[in-house]
Design a protein around this nucleic acid. Structure first.
Length: 246
DNA sequence: AATCCCAACAACCGCCGTCAC
DNA sequence: TGTGACGGCGGTTGTTGGGAT
């Protein structure tokens, strides 16, 4: 990221190609810039980003304004940790669509493609690296889809039932909690999860687990979730075992 | 208290598709 | 049909804050 210092040095060395380029500010947005952009878009609306930058008097590129608005200033942007439901949905949709971040983001209300991309890289890719596993390998993808995701689903159901019994103290700021149909709505638009359920059964049978006889996933060695973040050492260890078994 | 390391996130860059001229 | 401007997208990098040493 370019600092004011670099900016100044480039100016002095004549590294900028034009007067206009010299005036472009880079790096983190200030509160004042945010305020200017927000007020301008509130009055004039989105689009025509280059003219937004010019007309609002911001020394930013149109692209930079667009990104700042979409990823940070837009009223619908949700801040805070990615919930279990969202994690599951990201894994599910990524298994179908790959790195189509913007498409995946469309299915997660208030989440941006950048946020999802960051989640994927900092959590999932990192864990794959820890497991010395190629993130694109069939082995890793199958394990995620047929072992990991069902575990998450169980966890979500457990969480939901604890909500219904009043034992859950978490704040209800999660759109999926407010509207549990969201997950199934997504399944209307994309291939159903049911195909993976069949495979889960097949996979479990191969591993000697009968999902229909199991009262819960605690019958699977290594099952258990500490906090909302699923990528705990314990769970990674479990994944490692599954991958090793294959 | 100082330093190092790493995770998380914000922002930039380059490429590509679209559209107007 | 060619070309330039613009916007969207995915990949990558820089910054920062917090925990470990």
């Amino acid at each position: 990221m370019e600092t004011e210092y670099v900016h100044m040095m480039r100016s002095l060395s004549g590294a900028y190609r034009s007067e206009e380029e010299m005036l472009i500010t880079k790096g983190p947005w200030t509160e004042e810039e945010d305020s200017v952009l927000f007020n301008y878009i509130t009055v004039h609306g989105e689009g025509q980003w280059n003219s937004v930058a010019r007309s609002a008097g911001l020394k930013r590129t149109g692209k930079s304004c667009r990104l700042r608005w979409l990823n940070y200033l837009h009223p619908s942007v949700r801040r805070g940790n990615i919930t279990l439901q969202e994690q599951l949905l990201i894994l599910d949709l990524h298994s179908r669509w790959g790195n189509r971040w913007s498409k995946i983001a469309e299915q997660l209300p208030g989440r941006t493609d950048n946020e999802i991309k960051n989640y994927w890289r900092t959590r999932v890719v990192k864990q794959a690296n820890r497991l010395k596993c190629d993130i694109n390998s069939k082995q890793f993808r199958d394990t995620l889809r047929f072992v990991w995701m069902p575990r998450m689903q169980e966890r979500i159901q457990a969480q939901a039932s604890s909500v219904s019994t009043g034992s859950n103290t978490e704040a209800h700021s999660d759109p999926f909690e407010e509207n549990p149909c969201l997950l199934s709505e997504v399944d209307v638009h994309v291939p159903s999860l049911s195909d993976s359920s069949v495979c889960v059964s097949r996979y479990s049978a191969e591993k000697g687990y009968n999902p229909w006889q199991m009262r819960n996933y605690s019958d699977i060695p290594g099952y258990g979730f500490g906090g909302v973040d699923l990528w705990t050492d314990e769970n990674i260890c479990f994944l490692q075992q599954q991958l090793a078994d294959d």
